[in-house]
Simulated scan of single mutants.
Amino acid sequence: MVFNIWKKIKKKQFASLYLVYGTEAFLINETKQLLVHHVLEKEEIEFNFSSYDLEETPIETALEDAETFPFIGDKRLIILQNPFFLTSAKGKVDHHLAKLEAYLKEPAPYSIVVFLAPYEKLDERRKLTKELKRKAETIEAKKLNERELKEWIHERASLHSILIDEDAVDLLLLLVGTNLFLLTSEIDKLALYAKHIDIHTVEKLVSRSLEENIFHLVDKIVHRKIDEALRIFYDLLKQNQEPIKILSIISGQFRLIYQVKELARQGYGEKQIAGYLKVHPYRVKLAAGQARFFSNEELIRKIDLLSQADYEMKTGAMNKVLIIEMFLFKLNDTPIKQS
């Protein structure tokens, strides 16, 4: 995984060539920043750091720089962005790729050359792509799956010498989502607070996403605490959240509650449901708890009400804020039934 390469960089165990490709901007940016920080001293950056956009600059110009001896320090760091010639795309710059092929055979021992390729796929049929992947330390900057995300969170926490409980990881992912920039910010903040992060620490300190705020709104709806639901709704409006987006997420939560209830009735376990619906297991667990307060018929009625509210909002039949208020007031028509 990417952390293995990052750990080597932090130990100053550098490769001559790096290839970072994929669409996960955080992993690309973090690799670049780690190399700049650990390869060069501050006073060396001005003299020994160069960055080239290969959609504008020929590769031979960048390689001439890589073959120039460093000034003051021991290493040069050359960042090569957008190497489109590793894909099937065509660019406006003609590159002397034979020069690059020759460099790959014998990289300058005093230079670290980094290819940053923000593309979902490289053209694996190209001889140059194959050779670069064979010679370089390669990082696939892809979107992480659930297992990789959890591993990444634990690894990120370990960089701060802190431990984080598994249920705290689940809640962190639920509250923040899968954006690595946001997760990094929250983990760094948690690390300032404690050396052992449990679920209560996450509940207390982590900023809530729009979806999480709306989950709490739905929870108030579930328990027919309409005054408190309205208070959360008005707070969201003060944060400049659009009523149509709020309604959309409320609708999505009620659909999830219905799906979880129905699949549980058919004998599926929570992990199976999470896999089938492709949602986070913690969301399934919470939705299962909320589902106990509704019969299937009640949930269908609520989903119908939300569908009607969505239609009225999109056709301009009524003021958008009033539409959601009316939906919330209609919920008082049915008493709580716990099953």
Rank of each mutant, 00 (worst) to 15 (best):
V2A: 08
I9M: 00
K11S: 15
Q13L: 08
I28V: 13
L34E: 04
L35A: 03
V36Q: 12
H37L: 08
E41V: 09
E41P: 06
I45Q: 12
S51I: 15
S51N: 12
P58D: 01
I59P: 00
T61S: 11
A62F: 10
E64W: 07
A66L: 09
A66D: 03
E67T: 09
T68E: 05
F71C: 07
G73M: 04
D74L: 10
I79Y: 02
L80E: 04
P83M: 11
F84T: 11
L86N: 07
T87F: 04
K90L: 01
V93H: 05
L97P: 03
A98H: 04
E101T: 13
E101M: 11
A102M: 11
Y103W: 06
Y103A: 03
S111F: 09
V113F: 07
A117N: 07
R125P: 05
R126L: 14
K130D: 01
L132R: 07
R134Y: 05
K135H: 02
A136L: 07
T138N: 02
T138W: 01
I139R: 07
A141Y: 02
N145T: 01
E148T: 03
I153Q: 11
I153F: 13
A157N: 03
I162P: 08
I164G: 03
D165S: 14
D165C: 10
D167F: 13
D167C: 13
D167I: 15
L172Q: 00
L172Y: 02
G177P: 11
T178A: 14
L183R: 00
K189W: 03
L190M: 10
L190E: 04
H196Q: 12
D198P: 00
I199W: 04
I199L: 10
V202E: 01
R208K: 15
S209I: 06
E211Q: 13
E212K: 13
I214F: 03
F215D: 05
H216S: 15
E228Y: 11
R231E: 15
I232P: 09
F233L: 15
Y234D: 10
L236A: 06
N240K: 15
E242K: 14
K245W: 11
K245C: 05
S248Y: 15
Q253N: 12
R255Q: 14
L256N: 05
Q259C: 13
L263I: 03
R265P: 02
K271E: 14
K278W: 01
V279L: 07
P281V: 08
Y282D: 04
Y282A: 00
Y282S: 00
R283Y: 05
L286C: 00
A287K: 03
A287V: 06
A287G: 08
A288E: 08
R292P: 06
R292N: 09
F293Y: 15
F294W: 00
F294S: 04
F294V: 08
N296D: 10
E297W: 05
I300R: 14
I303G: 02
S307N: 14
Y311F: 14
T315V: 09
G316Q: 05
K320N: 14
F329C: 01
D333P: 01
T334R: 12
T334A: 10
P335K: 04
I336W: 00
